[in-house]
Design a binder for these strands. Structure first.
Length: 517
RNA sequence: GCCCCCAUCGUCUAGUGGCCUAGGAUACAUGGUUCUCAUCCAUGCGACAGGGGUUCGACUCCCCUUGGGGGUACCA
């Protein structure tokens, strides 16, 4: 262990789901901790009692887990610096409050919210910055006694140094200087004793020995307040990195139009967590000048907080979509099958038993569409034609079929040919070793000339010969057959379709179309 | 209003004074491969916000303008 140990945290408030920005913040904190060999902790900032919900908490935890951002300390895993919910640390804050009150860095404020607001408006009317007017900063004992007699419940405010230049060395923005006069005497403890964000955050970052804080730029001014408080506590503040917010396509704040509000919605839309991870890493950070795709391990070797850019970035779902397609194509077929299973089941085109009994077949089916999808959610729709009993043709498919008047004849003849051929059986029948012998991932050539049945390549040769014998150009032959078999004009190679569909279904579909009026 | 931050192709970005007639990725367009679509490959399109300085030399440093973002709570 290196001496000042590296500890980072993600500290969400459970007042809503984990959104894109939060996920990126968590990811950078996590990555920094991993990259520096430190710890990553999760702390729940639930001091806003009214808005915090357990539902939000669960969604946040699920979102982080889905992205693979495991925490070393925090809810569900514990740790030596707990508890990790701020509402369970109230006595701690009270102790610090006492200390600050005694040292003069804090004072009691008896003003009601209405009075504070009135003071704010007065200052604004005078052309000054609207803030707390510090009315109780220096009240005397008599005044204090009078307020107490009125049974006013005081809040605790921080005695911010007046008119002082304060420097903050931000890992992302560089050195920033702010005049403390811009900040007011902010509330540390609400009248009921509940701490506010800045106070609890500092106490916890201190107690939990946090070394680096990466968070959204909206916290920059809080960073100033917090570093002054660390100073008041005679403690060293962690290193801060305030990173730019993610913007929508229009350059404005990210809205529902641009991105989902819950990161888990991406899972439901068919995105892979690897792709989301990779993509959001790139929102403000770059792996290298010429590489956008990388593994987590590769990223951790290069990631440095200091390299996070200072300018805001826009979320672009098109690139995410492309990236997701890349990750889908990278998956092993069994893995792709495993991940598609829930979608396939939800679409009700397959019974659960199929995943055991016809695994090789399903892998081949996936291999046939893998290069044609960008989202997992496209799997069921692209594969459905293999499993339906009554195939519906789309408009383009109908057009292709009507284009050639003699098509019905050779469609029927082709059915007869297939009938006599050594084709694999149709799902759900046992297809023997056909799907193992001919892996569509390898263009179906594995079995060479000696498979248990005809390979897609052999089927193609047979079809070419057949077309020639019927005096039909191969290209003209293919399209109506594809339409009759799959119901659409695009998709996998025709003989992958024939192979996957199997003898009975091919014949049945070809004849059904051929027999139409 | 005041304070802080930011500014390279449509988008994500590389670039830290000369390697830049600005590189990669995506998107888009075109061509190739092919039974379609997709994948893949090739080519093209396309940017240093504007104006002042500093310098032998600025995308890179400084200032101003403009534009954008954030903050200004008894929310985080």
């Amino acid at each position: 262990m290196s001496e000042p140990s590296v500890r980072l945290r993600f500290a969400p408030s459970p007042t809503g789901p984990l959104h894109l920005g939060g996920a990126r913040t968590a990811l950078y904190n996590w990555a920094a901790a991993q990259a520096m060999g430190g710890k990553f902790l999760l702390r729940i900032e639930d001091t806003d009692r009214a808005r915090s919900t357990d539902e939000s908490l669960q969604i946040i935890l699920a979102g982080l887990s889905w992205l693979g951002l495991a925490w070393d300390e925090g809810p569900e895993v514990g740790g030596d610096f707990g508890p990790y919910f701020q509402t369970e640390r109230l006595e701690l804050y009270a102790g610090y409050a006492e200390r600050l009150l005694a040292s003069g860095w804090a004072y009691k404020c008896y003003a009601t919210p209405e009075e504070v607001q009135a003071g704010r408006e007065r200052l604004q009317a005078e052309g000054k910055s609207p803030m707390y007017d510090r009315r109780d900063r220096d009240i005397d004992d008599a005044q204090r006694a009078a307020y107490e007699a009125e049974e006013r419940k005081p809040s605790l405010r921080f005695r911010m140094p007046l008119d002082q230049l304060w420097k903050l060395e931000d890992l992302c923005k560089g050195e920033v200087e702010v005049n403390l006069r811009e900040l007011d005497d902010w509330v540390m403890l609400r009248p009921g004793g509940m701490p506010t964000y800045n106070f609890a955050c500092v106490v916890d970052d201190l107690e939990m020995r946090i070394s680096h804080v990466v968070r959204g730029d909206e916290h920059f001014m809080n960073g100033i307040k917090q570093s002054v408080l660390f100073h008041a506590l005679d403690a060293k503040a962690p290193k801060y990195a305030h990173i730019p917010l993610i913007l929508g396509k229009n350059g404005k704040k990210l809205s529902k139009r641009d991105a989902v509000t819950n990161i888990l919605d991406y899972r439901d839309k068919g995105y892979l967590p690897e792709a989301i991870f990779n993509y959001i890493s790139l929102l403000g950070w770059s792996f290298s000048g010429d590489q956008d795709l990388f593994t987590v391990e590769e990223m951790l070797q290069r990631f440095r907080i200091e390299d996070i850019g200072a300018s805001g970035s826009k979320f672009d779902e098109e690139k995410l979509l492309w990236m997701n397609g890349e990750y889908i194509r990278k998956l092993e077929l069994c893995e792709l099958l495993r991940r598609s299973q829930p979608l396939l089941l939800a679409a009700e085109i397959l019974p659960e038993s199929a995943f055991d009994q016809s695994a090789a077949y399903l892998r081949n089916a996936l291999a046939s569409i893998r290069e044609r999808i960008s989202l997992l959610s496209e799997v069921p729709e692209k594969l459905a034609y293999l499993f339906v009993d009554a195939l519906e043709l789309d408009k383009d498919a109908e057009k292709k079929l009507r284009k050639n008047e003699s098509a019905p004849q050779w469609l029927a003849a082709y059915a007869d040919l297939l009938e006599k051929s050594d084709l694999p059986a149709s799902y759900p029948a046992d297809r023997g070793d056909a799907d193992i012998a001919f892996s569509l991932a390898n263009k179906g050539e594995d079995g060479g000339e000696s498979g248990p049945c005809m390979s897609p390549a052999q089927l193609e040769q047979q079809a070419r010969d057949f077309a020639e014998s019927m005096d039909v150009k191969f290209g003209h032959f293919v399209h109506p057959v594809r339409a009759a078999l799959s119901g659409t004009t695009k998709g996998p190679g025709l003989f992958d379709i024939v192979f996957l569909l199997g003898k009975e279904r091919c014949c049945q579909r070809l004849r059904a179309i051929a027999a139409r009026p």
